[in-house]
Structures are given as C-alpha cells and as structure tokens.
C-alpha cells in the first residue's frame, strides 16, 4: 500500500533523514517511534506528501504521492495533526464537516450524502452533545475526538496521526487507540507517531524505530524493542515485564 524506497530527506545543511525503505501493508497499524529529533516527523511528512523526498520515492498503491493532486491525496490519506491552537473558534460541527472538503466541487457545497456521513461519525464518536459547541471550549480529549471525527468523515484508506496521545489522559489515550484498532480491523491503514513504547507493543502490527535520522529497526515492535535497544537509543534503563498472558511490557528499571 505505502511503499518508501530509499526515501531520503535533507533540510538544507541541517537535519538529514537517511534513506529509508519500508512497506506498510493495508489494514495494519504502524507505529513510528524514537527520541525527539530522530526524524519521526520528517518521515511522517514524507508519507503525507507535505515534503518531497530529496531522493528515492514514496508511493501509495504504486502512485508517487507527490504527483497526486491535493484533493486526490486528501481522499486517500487523512491526518490528525498534533494539537495546535486554531485561531478561529469554529463549532464542532463546522470543523468536522471540513473533512468532506476533498469531495466537494466549487459550486456544489455540502451534499446530502456529506451530511449523512458527518452525522453518522458524530454519533459514532459520541459528539452529538458537543455539535454546536465552539472548539475553544473543549477539553484536550474532546478536541482530539473532534479531530478524529474529521479524519473519519474524510473517508480515507490511510489515517496518519502525529502523536495522537499528546495532551490526553490515560483513559482517553486508551479509548483513542482502541478506536484506531477498530478502524484497522475495518480495513483502514493507520500510521501513528507514538512515544509510549508499551502502547506501540500492544497496538501496532508494524513499527519503525528511528534514531538521529536513521531507521535502526523495523518489524514487529515486541520483537525489536528490547531493553538493550531502548538503552542504546533512548539512554534509559528499562526493565522487562511479562503480563499473565505473556505480553511484553517495559517499566523504568529504578522502580
């Protein structure tokens, strides 16, 4: 589905993301992780088509992402950005409805079908009560749900999430990740930047560990994430735990 072939990116003389080759399969949950400044966001921007690779290629179902026109791409790939303050206080309904923009023509406006999709998603994500609230009055968790609703309204095959758990408490993080897992079961491809390694192990089918612009490991996170690897990359001593069901977990070693 998404294929990066020796994709490389340089910010002038600054950051350099060394060539990465990965294949992200359809209906999988992929996690990008690594320390701050390791290149996660750059890789994310490459997949999303915000930046073009300096060399190599990024293709979506065989088509070079950078050659897609803006609306086409937005019908394939939707993104939940990191929480950034929007300077305009739209209502929840208005913001969610913007997810239909890639399907609208200049004079057509919002169709009945658009409305139906918006209403369904709003109901599914339990946002009915907030519909006419202004986004400025929402809590972090509520706002994140609104952004998620917008990307679902966009009806894309691929969902990209940049640190979706940021600003969320534990309950909301879990809810969000469960919801994403459901989407994956429903056939969507999810790519998320995550910091929490335990969540990566628990939820992801595929993962990428980046360090200083290098992709140093890829595959099943529970296989490549070892305490040696974590020490090496994050410079933190962790201890491995096993849950009753045999699942792997990491905790700080000093505890």
């Amino acid at each position: 589905m998404i294929h990066l072939k020796n994709a490389e990116f340089r910010y002038g003389q600054g950051f350099h993301l060394k060539p990465v080759s990965i294949r992200i399969k359809k209906a999988t949950f992929t996690v990008l992780t690594g320390p701050n400044g390791s290149g996660k966001s750059t890789l994310f921007s490459l997949i999303n088509g915000i930046v073009k690779p300096t060399s190599g290629s990024v293709t979506l179902d065989g088509v070079e992402v950078s050659t897609l026109n803006d609306r086409e791409r937005a019908r394939f790939m939707g993104m939940v950005p990191q929480r950034n303050a929007i300077n305009f206080d739209y209502t929840v309904d208005e913001l969610v409805a913007m997810g239909r923009y890639p399907y609208q023509k200049l004079f057509s406006g919002e169709s009945e079908n658009d409305r139906k999709i918006i209403d369904e998603v709003i109901e599914r994500l339990d946002l009915e009560y907030y519909r006419n609230r202004r986004i400025g009055s929402l809590s972090g968790g509520e706002y994140q749900r609104v952004l998620l609703a917008r990307v679902l309204v966009q009806q894309t095959d691929v969902l990209l999430l940049d640190e979706p758990g940021n600003h969320l408490d534990l309950k909301h993080q879990t809810m969000l990740l469960n919801l994403l897992s459901e989407e994956v079961k429903g056939g969507k491809t999810v790519v998320a930047v995550l910091h929490d390694l335990n969540q990566a192990i628990h939820f992801a089918d595929y993962g990428l560990l980046l360090d200083d612009g290098n992709c140093i490991a890829s595959g099943l996170p529970r296989e490549f994430l070892t305490k040696e690897m974590i020490k090496n990359v994050f410079d933190v001593d962790m201890k491995e735990y096993r849950s009753a069901a045999g699942g792997l977990m990491f905790g700080l070693a000093e505890l």
Binding site: N48, N87, Y101, Q104
Partner: peptide, 23 residues
C-alpha cells in the same frame, strides 16, 4: 465568496490545510 470553504480550511493552518486537500 465562492471560495469561502477553501478559506475556512486555510484558516486552520498549513499542515491541516494540506491534509484536507488544499495546497
């Protein structure tokens, strides 16, 4: 006015505009 929806999208910031199909 014809392009008012596009302006809404643009007002969200460049990253979000990009992902919603507006350059």
């Amino acid at each position: 006015n014809i392009n008012a929806s596009k302006l809404n999208i643009l007002s969200l910031g460049s990253e979000e505009a990009h992902s919603l199909g507006v350059n």
